[in-house]
Design a protein around this nucleic acid. Structure first.
Lengths: 347, 347
DNA sequence: TTGTAGGCGTTATCAA
DNA sequence: TTGATAACGCCTACAA
């Protein structure tokens, strides 16, 4: 199974006519080496297509040159920019990235963390909140760099709430200006409360100050609903929107939820923004292409991921200058799906 | 930087009052061990929170328990289901997954492959075609399992062309039935020709047999175009569609291209399917939610990824029964965006 | 069923 | 500036 033709350091040393110590020094760049020796070593290494065995190196140096990324759910596209940013940053610095999907399961999270621990990753980046924070607490105590977006942003002086508050305020004011007084906040299930709790709190706060009524609507739908589920959802939304004191705005908690809701709304012949305005967290070309185009709050996860990774690499000593976390505030992109509140006859 | 409190095998052996060999045998499950010894070892290991050092184990056994995934471009969401499937399959079998983004760059691909090689990954799964096949050729010669979707599917007896041909035939016949005779096949740039070459060939073949004219239209647009780019694209599409003998169908090569084109079409006031029908490769809830809903060809990358990973793990001896590759054919989902060909006055 | 001991490939120490 | 050598933590003949 293992590579067979790939030589080891001794072969290179023999080929170059030097000792293994010299080869190591030259190739790792640590320790002195004469120009002549370096030359001989390099050409020997190239000739034998030699690559130092990372396991041996890790064992000896106690640095695996691997960082782990723990993702709550790899099915959710919001984590892709995040993962990409981490990988790119790490790759540039010579680190490999092990991706571990938790699948929203406590058991699997434990397993993945053990595996990462066994691999002796040099650091751990979490794309969301861990299911069991106590478990990663141990890592921290062992001195291993561990970060998640929430604590990272908070420690950097830009808590995620602060990044979100501006855009959320804009949305609410925009809605108020259009005469809306009742918002229905749509979530997939109860679980999302934990992850995006700060959003809910923030919106609630702003709404209170603007005398807007805010209600949470748990949809409990799948990301790929069948025709039946969709019909049912359509019925539910129709009843909701056409109720005497129903919301005149639907605010989707996540980008994956949005298209499902939109399809149901279309099925229920609810006109946007005529019958009801619509906003969602998370932008994409599809939201812009939709007619009416969908107003969104865009948050740049890749900026957060980049900053987290840079900070982590810096702690590992692989980034000389301490990175200045450059987190971008969430942005409200007003489009056509938000408009004047409909006149709705009460009772 | 490294974990400090985590004990090594000797500590566990001392704690359990046995030799390190016994600890290894018990915890790895290889070799004999009495029930009593196993009991003592397990509780000692639990007490010390011991996890065998993977680097040491790799070094000794020449198996890293890591598989690498080479992705052409982590920004493209089509690779997410693929990556997820690989990770899940691997994780269940005790393997970690290193994800390596090539960023469509030859230099980075070489770097990533070297890194994976240095980590002595037990296998390599490529999500797309490598930029430089010769490089992975070496891996194969060294006896390392390497697969990509194209050769895997072909070797499994279900070449990707065969998986795609049914759906493509259906689309073409559907279009012919609606009276279409001219198709514009939209691609982002010249690069996509290599990756999805087989699609183009297949469509061409079917179109010839149905006397449909097929033209390739290279858009050269970004995935997040600015307003100016969009206007320009709109102009171009308008001219294309309203030309005397312009296409009456636009067929998008990829799911990331589709929304951009749709937005441009909306900008140009081109009515779907009134002025022009529209199909795209790749499904998503947004395609279903769009009005008119978008006809798509859905291909299940995760099924391919799962089969590839299963086969690879089997080769590594971690899967007892040889997996039967269960590849699903591409599926044509007819929706509203495909309709009767418009009557277009010539010249 | 158990323990002893050698070595996997690399790097850091130390003496030359 | 170089080379000999001793670990790093684990696994596995082999001997008991």
């Amino acid at each position: 199974v293992a590579s067979s033709t790939r030589g080891d350091i001794r072969r290179v040393a023999a080929e170059a006519g030097v000792s293994t110590a010299t080869v190591s020094r030259v190739l790792s760049g640590r320790g002195p080496a004469s120009a002549g020796a370096a030359q001989k070593v390099r050409s020997a290494a190239a000739k034998l297509d030699y690559l130092p065995n990372a396991s041996a190196s890790s064992l000896r140096t106690d640095r695996s040159m691997i960082i782990g990324v723990l993702v709550p759910n790899l099915a959710n596209p919001v984590f892709l920019p995040f993962l990409r940013a981490v990988e790119q940053m790490a790759q540039r610095r010579g680190y490999s990235v092990i991706v571990a999907d938790t699948q929203h399961s406590d058991r699997i999270e434990a397993q993945q963390l053990d595996r990462l621990s066994a691999q002796r990753v040099d650091g751990l980046i979490m794309a969301g909140r861990p299911r069991n924070p106590a478990r990663v607490g141990r890592w921290r105590r062992d001195g291993l760099p561990v970060t998640d977006p929430y604590t990272f942003a908070a420690e950097a002086g830009f808590p995620l709430e602060s990044l979100a508050s501006g855009a959320i305020g804009q949305v609410c004011r925009d809605l108020a200006d259009f005469g809306h007084t009742r918002i229905g906040y749509l979530t997939r299930g109860a679980g999302s409360r934990a992850t995006f709790g700060h959003r809910w709190e923030l919106i609630g706060e702003v709404c209170r100050s603007l005398a807007i009524e805010l209600d949470r609507v748990t949809l409990g739908v799948d990301t790929r609903p069948g025709p039946g589920d969709l019909r049912q959802l359509a019925g539910r939304l129709e009843a909701l929107v056409h109720a005497p004191h129903g919301p005149t705005v639907l605010w989707s908690n996540s980008h994956v939820l949005a298209p499902v809701v939109l399809e149901a709304l279309a099925l229920a012949h609810i006109d946007l923004p005529g019958d009801c305005s619509f906003v969602t967290f998370g932008d994409s070309p599809w939201a812009a292409a939709y007619r009416p185009s969908i107003s969104v709050i865009e948050s740049d996860m890749s900026a957060v991921a980049e900053a987290m990774t840079a900070a982590l690499l810096h702690r590992l000593g692989s980034l000389d200058i301490p990175p200045v976390p450059r987190l971008t505030e969430d942005r409200y992109i007003a489009r056509e799906s938000v408009g004047p509140a409909p006149n709705r006859r009460a009772g």
